[in-house]
């Protein structure tokens, strides 16, 4: 039995203590926006916020958490896709297959909370999640755009193509 606080809701989950948070989110709680990619904290597809810090949920045994730990998933980042990072992602048309993007967005949101005006070097250091489609250039552009408060939904795709 684990006591969790996910997206502001206190929850009791009946599950073995060694079950990774990722699988509790996906299987017991039905929140499938957080993705399985590697299971060894390498790829970041499972990124969530734990007390405001980005963490890889595949490597967090649920038994190590308490009800006071605040977990936020992609489903809880905003109610309607209106978080500045989500809006910037839409404006830049970042996703391709999209599978890694929940994790990328959670990582970017955590970065901007800590470092509202990140440099390229900050982005290099913080955005370590794997994207196999290769959306990195657009991720970088979207993080900068979100930092500037840009990213209106419905805006044109004015992509800088040098």
């Amino acid at each position: 039995m684990a006591k969790l606080n996910v997206n502001g809701k206190p929850l009791d989950v009946k599950v073995d203590d060694d079950t990774p948070l990722l699988w509790v989110l996906r299987e017991q709680l039905g929140m499938t926006g957080t993705k399985y990619g590697c299971g060894v904290a390498q790829c970041g597809a499972c990124s969530v916020h734990l007390n405001g810090e980005v963490q890889r949920s595949c490597a967090i045994p649920v038994g190590s958490l308490q009800a006071t730990n605040k977990i936020v998933t992609i489903e809880g980042l905003s109610r309607d896709g209106s978080h500045p990072v989500q809006k910037a992602w839409a404006t830049v048309d970042v996703p391709q297959c999209g599978y890694c993007q929940s994790g990328q967005i959670m990582a970017a949101a955590a970065l901007l909370k800590k470092t509202p005006k990140p440099t390229d070097t900050d982005i290099d250091a913080a955005m370590t999640n794997i994207c196999r489609c290769g959306t990195y250039q657009r991720i970088r552009a979207a993080v900068h755009l979100a930092a500037k408060g840009g990213g209106k939904s419905g805006a044109s795709t004015a992509q800088k193509k040098a």
């Binding site: 905003s78 896709g81 993007q101």
Partner: peptide, 8 residues
Amino acid sequence: DTTDKLTG
């Protein structure tokens, strides 16, 4: 096909 890829 972007919108749903931003919200999970």
